[in-house]
Design a protein around this nucleic acid. Sequence first.
DNA 1: CTGAAAGCGCTTACAG
DNA 2: CTGAAAGCGCTTACAG
Lengths: 362, 362
Amino acid sequence: MSLTTGGRSTDVSKRKQTGKARAVITVLDVARHARVSPMTVSRVINGKESVGKKLREKVMASIKALNYSPNLAGRSLRTHTAYQIGLLYSNPSAAYLNQFMVGALQESSLSGCRLTIEQCGGLDSQRVAIEKLLAARVDGVIIPPPLCDSKTTLTHLEEEGMPVVAFATGRPVAGVSSVRIDDYEAAHAMTEYLISLGHRDIGFIEGDPKHTPAALRSAAFFAAMEEAKLEVPRERVAHGLFTYRSGLAAAEKLLKCAHPPTAILASNDDMAAATISVAHGLGLKVPEDLTVCGFDDTPVATTVWPELTTIHQPVTTMARHAVKLLITEIQRRRAGEPAEGMHEVVKFTLVKRGSSAPPRQS
Amino acid sequence: MSLTTGGRSTDVSKRKQTGKARAVITVLDVARHARVSPMTVSRVINGKESVGKKLREKVMASIKALNYSPNLAGRSLRTHTAYQIGLLYSNPSAAYLNQFMVGALQESSLSGCRLTIEQCGGLDSQRVAIEKLLAARVDGVIIPPPLCDSKTTLTHLEEEGMPVVAFATGRPVAGVSSVRIDDYEAAHAMTEYLISLGHRDIGFIEGDPKHTPAALRSAAFFAAMEEAKLEVPRERVAHGLFTYRSGLAAAEKLLKCAHPPTAILASNDDMAAATISVAHGLGLKVPEDLTVCGFDDTPVATTVWPELTTIHQPVTTMARHAVKLLITEIQRRRAGEPAEGMHEVVKFTLVKRGSSAPPRQS
DNA sequence: CTGAAAGCGCTTACAG
DNA sequence: CTGAAAGCGCTTACAG
């Protein structure tokens, strides 16, 4: 008889097992160990109220003693909760997607659902990607930016009766659930921080205007500046597209002038990283000669030197929420309840790092 | 009675269903439709040989007609194949991990297994991360670089009897399965390409020497240069750590000298991107004044300007292979067969883009 | 080559 | 508050 790996031996070893597969503990084993019915074990696992304190404790002890963990396949089969969750993304900001994936995977392994990921580029491939998700029999779809704001995408999915969660959208729509941070408030807070450091000449790199969060960030920047009675002349603002490359061009526009700003706020980290690169190229020290701030706190924020002061968007946590929200929505529809978007706003954090400091002569 | 979404109505609609949940098609429905037993349907789905041509075709037609797809929960429950696959990563190169995830997810949704992802930093957190994976009851672990070469990690997992696949390691170990490209051959090909363009003064940025692929890439570069009877003086080689930042320092070392090289081969794309940035800062045009090549073809390769000539490593495909290999290995062990590493070498591609050209006076 | 029976591990629906 | 029975969808193991 084979040894059970590193554990006290239990009555489990008596179970008939084909070959040398190691014994798997089931509700039945726990039930026997605790001298209750499997149902009671099931109730305890699922946190149902209706179990007496004594039994509950006995069961919990047995679960611990046997090191039991439920078999998701069995549960899913019985409860029909093995949802396929689709992720439809278009802008392959690797770092962002990555953090998203970690959270989504965490939550889906807890709730027993599966993830399918589909990338798309233009409008055409968008249609194709959605068809693929439908063919993969997804029960709901999560859409990160910028697709989360695409009317085409949303309508297409709506028509198919597909539950959707818009991820990090800047403009939540009534019928579609969403998870996001308050981009406006975040950009406002960042601008106020720069002002509080003593900066007056602050340059701003806008994000892709098609992304709704970008619009909010811009609006908040201008609002905060106005509230502080600070002018923002046209040459202090540059357009960007959230890419590193667009950040290079934008930073050059802002810095190659007679009176460059003492601080630049970029609408995301990639463009802030590009700004640092341009500054260095021009012989400017960061943060001594120029403060540079980003947005999102993606890995690049801590890769560049100096590390970026930025807005931390808890993407992983948000992804977990998104999966939960989507499951709720799927179950709602299954139960025949009308679709009704739920909207969650998650807290951001302003992370101060080496790229920001008071201006030289403040 | 509710409409079935976009489909011809079938006898399925007669099935008793709680509430308005849409009808789900099972093997039974297909069997009825094809007038065979469920077993025959199952055999067809699983591609067993032993089904007559006539029946097989009837079943396939029914599957198509009913738009059937098997329920993974049912299958997993019966076949015990709902493996938990752990991914243990340490170096959060987002882009790389991302491509990996896409492939791993594709394969795992096909084979019905689940993914758990765990990050770790130093040695301490490595232990913790492995404990977490064990607690999550993973049945096997895939390890991307640089952890795939960590003796500590491998030993720890070995001791727990955990099947492992080393991903993109430069030094496959006998007992541990691996999936990789031939880094040596790839770096050799890239060096030969630069030489064929007419470059003689070629700078090289090494990767983190602790990463085995880095060592192979370096070795191949020197070998290819020697084969072409080209000297590589010490000032043509710079150390890097695969990070953008280390690339900046390395590129400066190579370029800020009396006779800078006409081409620089960096051991990965991040450092190549940094090299372009430094070159621009020094007023050098890429590729007119300086050819820059990378390695891996991560998204940054097509983000920077000009886009990078680089070695395409098909990470997504490799990830699919890794999952398959791991499943095979898990099943082997379950069947009591001895562990025996399988090693797969996947083809790379040399992708020529805008960052490479012949030297000015060739 | 094909099928009838049984059961994977769990929880729903019913009974007390 | 607790339990005995049944079944989710699939495939293994057996029988023909």
